[in-house]
Design a protein around this nucleic acid. Structure first.
Length: 450
DNA sequence: CGCCTTTGACCCGCGC
DNA sequence: GCGCGGGTCAAAGGCG
């Protein structure tokens, strides 16, 4: 934060003082630096009235004394004021010049006081505005979370009522359906014609709206692009590879992973190298974890979860049923829209976080060495994000900063949403080497929200 | 032995 | 209806 007010209420001291000097012909030593003059004004006044008390023993005092003296004895200032001839009653002698200068000083003091008062008020208004913005975004996040919880509860109730008639695959489908962006095996049309939905056909308009929107947002995905020499990005979760396919238009195969941290966890991810730059790994996450996550996985999980929630909540207000990318850009990606993209096109709404672009100009302590884990990377992201959002972080110890970032992640869902912004504002090549030395078999870890 | 990866087969949606 | 492509399954084999 600089001292210059920036929200409309600005005060150009240079212009003010130069204007004053133009009209009152302030001596050159006063014009040389208007700010210096303002800052030294009090001292000069004190020197002026305590002239006799000054000691000439020190050169600095002596210099000041000389300056004060020059102010005192300069009777040839020839000050030109706005006074007209009607003001000729004022005696045009040294005292008159002195009065004019004193008046100028007084005006400057008044202006300075006004400037300081306005700056303070401006600062208070900025703080109030920031608080309102933060509160607004927090409420936005809470609203999206509540909507998701309501859908989850509804899905769980449906599942509990029908489990006895389901085969294993159906159970998996329902587990996927526990999340609003899930259910990968049946199209919305099939679901609408299934016995389940026939038995539960609603005459409730809200329900219909909910179903129509669900159809478009069911498969929300979060895609992360990062540079890495390794085939996958470690994120703290355990994954099991269950398939691999050659994708069209890409010589590199696409690998399919399933979360194995808990039975029935619906989270899946796809890993594929970017065709045009094979140093870039594209990891796409789908679904939310239905089990506790280790701390090392929390950062990525919270991030992608928040991104997905924002993606889903961004879908809600859209009249055409498509995700409202403008809403998302405003809320989730306020300062890095060029690095995070949202695709509202079929088949699934996808938010892409690009970690491969220009390194962040901010150099936090985390940058002193290459981050080796996703937690570090995201801790760095959070640290950088905190600079954007003005959040308070611990100073000094990087470990303390990391603790702060983790605490913030856990405590504030809005903060995790904002993390998506930070992700895209930093990291270049930071994800490589993440797996070197780690379990080369089952530790393919990425992140996903729960 | 348990868990993993590999890989061909299969299912499904979509476009023509 | 057919072919294509994406996604998943499951048997086979490897590894600790």
């Amino acid at each position: 934060m600089d001292d210059t007010p920036s929200n409309g209420l600005t005060f150009d001291l240079d212009r003010i003082t130069s204007s004053v000097s133009d009209h009152h012909r302030i001596p050159p030593f006063m014009e040389s630096s208007s700010h210096e003059f303002c800052h030294d004004r009090q001292i000069n006044e004190v020197d002026f009235f305590n002239d006799q008390k000054l000691s000439i023993g020190s050169s600095s005092n002596f210099t000041r004394h000389k300056q004060s003296s020059s102010v005192n004895i300069n009777t040839c200032l020839n000050l030109v004021t706005g006074n007209t001839s009607s003001d000729q009653s004022i005696i045009e002698d040294g005292m008159s010049s002195y009065s004019e200068e004193e008046r100028t000083k007084h005006e400057l003091a008044t202006v300075q006081a006004e400037y300081e008062r306005t700056s303070g008020e401006n600062q208070r208004l900025k703080e109030a505005l920031n608080k309102v913005i933060i509160d607004y975004k927090t409420l936005e996040m809470h609203f999206a979370t509540i909507l998701q919880y309501k859908r989850e509860e509804k899905s769980v109730e449906d599942r509990d009522g029908r489990r006895s008639t389901m085969g294993p695959r159906s159970i998996m489908d329902l587990a996927l359906a526990a999340e609003p962006n899930e259910n990968s095996h049946y199209s919305s049309e099939e679901r609408s014609h299934s016995p389940i939905n026939k038995n539960n056909s609603m005459d409730d308009n809200n329900r219909k709206i909910d179903q129509s929107t669900e159809a478009t947002i069911r498969k929300a995905r979060v895609s992360v692009r990062a540079r890495s020499e390794a085939s996958v990005i470690t994120d703290g979760c355990q994954w099991r590879k269950y398939g691999q396919k050659m994708a069209k238009g890409n010589p590199c195969p696409r690998a399919y992973y399933r979360c194995t941290m808990a039975a029935g966890c619906p989270v899946r991810k796809q890993v594929q190298r970017y065709a045009e730059d094979k140093t870039i790994v594209i990891t796409t996450y789908e679904g939310n974890h239905n089990h506790p996550l280790p701390p090392s996985a929390m950062a990525m999980a919270s991030t992608t979860s928040s991104a997905a929630r924002m993606l889903l909540s961004g879908s809600m207000p859209s009249a055409d049923g498509l995700p409202n990318s403008n809403f998302l850009s405003r809320t989730l990606l306020p300062c890095s829209s060029n690095m995070a993209t949202i695709s509202a096109s079929a088949p699934f709404p996808t938010i892409t976080l690009d970690l491969t672009q220009t390194p962040n100009p901010f150099q936090s302590p985390f940058n002193s060495s290459n981050p080796n884990t996703m937690s570090q990377i995201f801790g760095q992201s959070l640290y950088n994000q905190s600079k954007f959002s003005g959040l308070q972080m611990s100073q000094g110890d990087p470990q303390a900063r990391m603790a702060d970032t983790v605490s913030a992640l856990r405590a504030d869902p809005n903060f995790t949403a904002a993390l998506a912004t930070a992700i895209s504002s930093m990291i270049s090549g930071g994800t490589s080497d993440d797996f070197h030395g780690s379990n080369n078999k089952a530790s393919n870890s990425n992140f996903q929200g729960n």
